[in-house]
């Protein structure tokens, strides 16, 4: 096994299809093609894949992370981790962690003030992964997912702007 990480090639339709397949198999939420189009076509630079170059399918993604960045209430730049998946046979090797690190590094360089994501309260593995990197739970959301579980909203602060209420940042901007 030798894992290589690379950014998405949006012109590679095969890659698009295999990312969709990888995530559909992993996540309980159903996603249409246009969920992927929303993320991958608008922020192609914020999707990364992991491939095993020593495997029989050296170009097939065995893991991927899908992100975007948006201005949040026009006061801070927020990076958002939309999806993260690693093929079950490749778990336990830190691939997810590396994918998250690569993505956050990219978003930090793109001047994000914070990184946000939602995850199920029951998803201990995801919580451990993100909280180990400094994410904290900001709020709990009642029955957030289709499978009826609560979710946590997690944020990792990258700059001071993440730590001030947006209302007061707006006032600051006007001043």
């Amino acid at each position: 096994m030798e894992i290589v990480y690379k950014p998405l090639d949006i012109r590679n339709e095969e890659q698009f299809a295999s990312i969709k397949k990888l995530i559909d198999a992993d996540l309980s939420e159903p996603y249409s093609i246009y969920v992927y189009r929303y993320f991958l076509n608008q922020w192609p630079e914020l999707t990364y894949i992991a491939v095993d170059v020593k495997s029989s399918t050296p170009s097939a993604p065995i893991g991927c992370i899908v992100c975007k960045t948006d201005p949040h209430r026009n006061v801070r730049q927020r990076g958002y981790i939309g999806m993260l998946a690693v093929e079950s046979t490749y778990r336990g090797h830190g691939i997810a962690k590396t994918l998250v690190e690569i993505a956050i590094d990219k978003m930090q360089r793109a001047h994000c003030d914070e990184i946000m994501l939602e995850t199920e309260v029951e998803n201990v593995a995801a919580l451990n992964l993100y909280e180990g990197m400094g994410f904290i739970r900001m709020k709990r959301m009642f029955r957030y997912y289709l499978n009826e579980g609560d979710a946590f909203k997690l944020i990792l602060p990258l700059t001071e702007r993440s730590c001030t209420r947006s209302t007061f940042l707006m006032h600051g901007q006007m001043a």
Partner: peptide
């Protein structure tokens, strides 16, 4: 990517 103080302040 972050530090103790920022997390506290968040």
């Amino acid at each position: 990517f972050s530090d103790e103080r920022l997390i506290h302040e968040l």
